[in-house]
């Protein structure tokens, strides 16, 4: 009898079910946690974004309509922060993918030491952002090791370079940290993808006499296209969520010049106490990231359109 309540499993032949108690039992914990601890705060955040939100006992929050959104859009520092975030994404995402893919291809081609290299390249990923940011700050200090190396030892520059003091170089250091920390993740993802490429393709190409480089572009790249898209999407989301490294290394200084989206939001929420602004900004940011993700799916050369339908 119980079978009547079950759907027949399988990707191709899904049927509507009426009541499936085991299924509900499996679904409920995740659903409850998700609705309560994620969806409810997100809805509350949406409400906050339309108020001049006040903390404090017996304080009244005033409904202000779209004023917070208007403020975000017209705020020059906010625009600067978003521009910086775009630059961060444009620099870190491709570099991570290219370097991660290179390392993956090289490791994939070796016979011995695969695991050792995998672990060594993965170490930066498992280093926490706080620790990594502190170490980078330390290396890129005006009196840090890098300046000593460049200026005093190698004599490449005449004076110490104030890496963290200037907006462009400060962001550059944060980008470098992002790349350093991201290579390992990409390596692992691409290694996984490379294992899925049929060996016969390479064997056939070798017989045809095509070189390694040609094989890479004509066999490897097309075969792992979907993985590249996956990495692009995940890394773009990650780049827009960059926070700890900037907060600890430049703190948005000088004069908010190195602010990125999240540091600026944090500043507005907890330093300037403008929670309405911060909430509105979260939603605008989420819209930007959604747009980027959708554009990636739309314009990325991809013959498997199934994935797109699933995500959008």
């Amino acid at each position: 009898m119980a079978q009547n309540y079950l759907t027949m499993p399988g990707v191709t032949e899904k049927k509507k079910i009426k009541i499936n108690y085991p299924l509900i039992f499996l679904l409920l914990p995740g659903l409850m946690v998700f609705l309560l601890f994620t969806i409810y705060p997100i809805v509350k955040l949406l409400i906050m974004s339309f108020f001049d939100w006040q903390l404090g006992l017996e304080q009244k929050s005033v409904f202000v309509g779209f004023k917070n959104y208007l403020q975000v859009i017209t705020d020059p520092i906010c625009r600067k922060a978003i521009a910086n975030t775009f630059v961060y994404a444009l620099v870190t995402v491709p570099s991570q993918i290219v370097l991660g893919l290179c390392v993956a291809v090289l490791i994939h081609s070796t016979k011995r030491g695969k695991i050792t290299f995998r672990v060594l390249y993965y170490l930066p990923v498992i280093t926490s952002w706080v620790i990594a940011a502190l170490v980078f700050k330390y290396i890129f200090n005006n009196e840090g090791f890098l300046n000593y190396l460049l200026c005093d030892l190698l004599q490449l520059t005449e004076n110490y370079i104030p890496w963290l003091d200037r907006p462009a170089t400060g962001l550059f250091v944060a980008e470098l940290l992002g790349i350093w920390k991201g290579i390992g993740w990409n390596m692992v993802v691409f290694l996984a993808a490379l294992q899925g490429v049929p060996v016969e393709l390479y064997e056939a190409a070798s017989i045809d006499g095509s070189g390694k480089i040609k094989q890479f572009f004509y066999i490897t790249l097309p075969s792992i296209k979907n993985t590249i898209l996956f990495a692009l999407v995940m890394l773009s989301i990650g780049a827009f969520n960059v926070f700890t490294s900037i907060q600890l290394m430049t703190g948005g200084h000088p004069a908010h010049q190195t602010e990125v989206a999240l540091t600026w939001m944090y500043y507005k929420a907890f330093a300037a106490r403008d929670f309405g602004y911060a909430a509105a900004f979260s939603y605008i940011l989420a819209m930007i990231i959604t747009l980027i993700t959708m554009m990636l799916f739309k314009y990325f050369p991809n013959d498997h359109t199934r994935r797109i339908e699933k995500l959008t």
């Binding site: 998700f34 309560l36 409810y40 939001m265 989420a286």
Partner: peptide
Amino acid sequence: LLFAAIMATMIIPGMTLIIPQFEL
């Protein structure tokens, strides 16, 4: 809808959720 919602929450930055989450 559920799957779309799960995907969408990967996009919203968690930072400002602190206040409503704290109330929870």
